[in-house]
Design a protein around this nucleic acid. Structure first.
Lengths: 243, 243
DNA sequence: ATTTATAAACATGTCCTACAGGTATGGTGA
DNA sequence: TCACCATACCTGTAGGACATGTTTATAAAT
C-alpha cells in the first residue's frame, strides 16, 4: 500500500481563533508526523503544554476533543495513546441526527439496506469457514430464543455484525456497527408490529436463508435474501407508524 | 496490514467512571430530555457546574467532547448551542483509519461505490430540475477546466456531492461528504495515472453520462454509469500502486 | 417614538496552583 | 528468578483570577 504522505490535516475546524483548536491540530500533526501507530503513547500533558507553549488546561481540552472522536485513548494515570477508530462516533452522530429530527428512521434503513446488500455479497465471497459457522449460529440462536424478544434482537445485531466482519472490509464494519444504535431503538417496534408468530418466524427465516446463502458462497442469493429482509422490516416499521 | 477495528456496543460513552464522562452523559440526556432543537442554547458552564455539582473545568471538558462530535457548537462569549450533525467527524475517522493503516484506499472505494450507486439511482428518481441543472453544470465545468487538475477535482467532488443532495437522504449526504477527505488525497494520483488525454476525457465522459441519466430520470442507466466510473477509477489507482 | 450609542452584566478562554489518586518502573528481599 | 513495594510520573478535579467577547438593558439622540 503506497503512502501519500501529504499529512495535510483534514479540515479539522479549519480556521480557529482558540488555542485549544490550534493545539488539537498540533497534536493531530504530531501523530501524522511521527507516524504513530495504534497503541503508541503521546507525550504527557505537561510535556505537550511546555512544548506548545500553552497551559495544561488547553492540552487537556485538546485531548478530550481527540478522544471524543476516538483518535486517542485516555486513561487515568496513563499517557494518551493513539486509538483505533470505532463505530461509536458515527453512531452518536446518527443517533443525534435522528433525535433532532434531521433524519428519519426510514432514511437510515435505506442506507443500511444499501450497505448490507453489499456486505452480505462480499461475505458470501470472502467468508472463512469460521465466519460461516458464526453467522449460522446467530441465526439459529434467534430461532432458539424465539420467545425472548430482547435476546432475539441481540442475536440479530450480532448476525449482521458478523456478516460485516466476514466482508473483510473494516469500513463496512464501521458503518454497520454504527447503525446498530438506531436499530436498538427501532427493533422492538418492528418486532411488536409483527404480532403473529408466523410473521416473526418469517423474520428468522430470512436470516437462516441469508446464512445459508453465505455458507453456499452464493452472493446473489445472499443479496436477494438481504434485500427481502430489509423490505420486510421497512414495511413492518411503516405499519407501526415509523416513517 | 494489521487491523484492530473494535466494533462494539456504544451509545453513550461506556461506563467509564470519571466525572467528565458522567457530565457528558448528563448533558446528552439534558438535550434529549428537553428535546432541544438545533440552535437552541444550553445552560452556561457555570450554571451546569453548579447544577451537576462539579467544577467548571469538568463541564468545559465535557463541552469540548460534545463539540468534537458536533453535538453542540461552542463560541467565545456565547452559550453552547445544539448543533446539526455534519460529515466532518466521520471524515476524520476515515482519514485517521487510512493513515493508521487500518483501512486501504481500495476498501474505501468499494464502500463509496456501493453508496454512490444508490445515491445516483435515488437522484435519478427524486431530483428536482434545479438538481439536474446543478449536476450537469459540474460535469460541464470539469470539461471546461480540463487542463487544470486541481479545478477538475473540485468540480468532481462537487458533482458527487450534488448527487448525494439530490438523493434527498441526509444520511447518504453525510457519508458521501465524509469520503471526500480521502478523495482529495487520492484523486490527484488517479489523475496522474491517466497520462493520456483520451483517458482523462473518458473520466469526464462518465460524469457527463451520469448527469444525462439523472436528467433523463433513468436510475438504472445512472447506476450503471456510476459503477463503470468507479471501476475505472479503481483500476487507475491500482495501476498507480494504490491498494 | 424609534433608532442608535453606550455601559453593565454575563459568558467563555486561558493561566496558575494545589492536591488526590491511578500507573508504571525499578530496586529490594526472599 | 520472582514477588513485592516504594517512588516518581501522570492524570483527574477543584478553585481562583483575569482578559476578552457577547448580549442586554439603559440612555442619548434624532
Amino acid at each position: 500500500m503506497v503512502r501519500f504522505l501529504t499529512s495535510n490535516a483534514v479540515a479539522l475546524e479549519a480556521r480557529s481563533d482558540g488555542l485549544v483548536d490550534q493545539t488539537v491540530r498540533s497534536i493531530h500533526d504530531l501523530i501524522r508526523g511521527e507516524k504513530l501507530q495504534v497503541g503508541q503513547a503521546l507525550p504527557s500533558e505537561t510535556a505537550l503544554a511546555v512544548r506548545l507553549g500553552v497551559s495544561r488546561v488547553v492540552v487537556r481540552e485538546a485531548f478530550r476533543s481527540l478522544a471524543a472522536v476516538k483518535l486517542i485513548d485516555l486513561g487515568t494515570g496513563r499517557r494518551a495513546r493513539v486509538a483505533a477508530p470505532d463505530s461509536s462516533v458515527l453512531a452518536l452522530t446518527l443517533d443525534h441526527s435522528v433525535h433532532i429530527d434531521q433524519t428519519s428512521v426510514q432514511q437510515v434503513l435505506d442506507v443500511r439496506r444499501t450497505i448490507e446488500m453489499r456486505t452480505v455479497a462480499l461475505a458470501a465471497l470472502r467468508r472463512t469457514d469460521a465466519d460461516a459457522v458464526r453467522i449460522a449460529t446467530f441465526a439459529r440462536n434467534m430461532s432458539d430464543d424465539f420467545l425472548n424478544g430482547e435476546r432475539v434482537m441481540g442475536h440479530d445485531i450480532a448476525f449482521h455484525e458478523a456478516i460485516a466482519a466476514a466482508s473483510k472490509n473494516p469500513v463496512f464494519e464501521l458503518l454497520v456497527g454504527a447503525f446498530h444504535v438506531v436499530t436498538r431503538q427501532t427493533w422492538p417496534i418492528g418486532w411488536a408490529a409483527r404480532a403473529r408468530d408466523a410473521d416473526r418466524r418469517a423474520v428468522i427465516a430470512f436470516h437462516v436463508e441469508i446464512a445459508s446463502a453465505i455458507a453456499a458462497r452464493e452472493p446473489q442469493r445472499a443479496e436477494r435474501a438481504m434485500a427481502e429482509h430489509f423490505d420486510n422490516s421497512t414495511k413492518a416499521l411503516l405499519a407501526a407508524g415509523i416513517t
